[in-house]
């Protein structure tokens, strides 16, 4: 891919707002739920925690995109290799989890527990793979001009 900075940010937000929201809704009920006083937390609370994760990955992701864009400047081709798109899941996942577990902004940790790690991991990794696979091909079917516009969706060439 050869994203521009605005292309990166637009693609990130639109992917999370569509695939992110849909996939989280689908996978939510089957993720392992933490127990409080011997009872699993409700699906509602589970969704609250998961959608908070979606928001954090989106918002913090914009900052990440600034860093990636800066790294990209040191590449002659000004591209973003396919494999980088996977590798950065590691740093992003770790930072997103640390933020969620610190209870910054909103606190969706079950009382007295850390943010549910297994559920976060499964959801984050599967969602990442879906978005990565989608933006590396099928996206071009839906938006013919996307690849020529550096990942932007706005109608200007």
């Amino acid at each position: 891919m050869t994203p521009t900075l605005f292309g990166r940010i637009q693609t990130r937000i639109i992917m999370m707002a569509t695939l992110g929201v849909i996939w989280t809704a689908i996978i939510g009920p089957v993720l392992p739920r933490p127990s409080v006083d011997g009872e699993s937390i409700s699906l509602g609370n589970m969704y609250k925690a998961l959608y908070l994760a979606v928001v954090v990955v989106t918002v913090v992701g914009v900052v990440w995109e600034l860093i990636y864009h800066w790294i990209q400047q040191y590449r002659w081709e000004k591209d973003w290799p396919t494999i980088y798109g996977l590798v950065v899941a590691i740093n992003e996942g770790i930072v997103a989890y640390l933020i969620l577990n610190a209870g910054l902004f909103w606190d969706e940790r079950p009382p007295g527990q850390s943010f549910p790690l297994p559920a976060f991991l499964i959801m984050f990794v599967t969602l990442w793979l879906i978005i990565w696979a989608f933006t590396n091909g099928p996206m071009q079917i839906l938006s013919l001009r996307w690849r020529f516009r550096g990942g932007r969706f706005d109608p200007n060439w």
């Binding site: 050869t2 994203p3 521009t4 292309g7 002659w76 081709e77 000004k78 020529f148 550096g150």
Partner: peptide, 25 residues
Amino acid sequence: RPVLAGWAKQGFNFPKAAWGGQLRN
């Protein structure tokens, strides 16, 4: 752009972003 033994090297005849990234802009 890297050069090896007198040859300037890149994947294609222009850097990739010339087709649809920041270099196009």
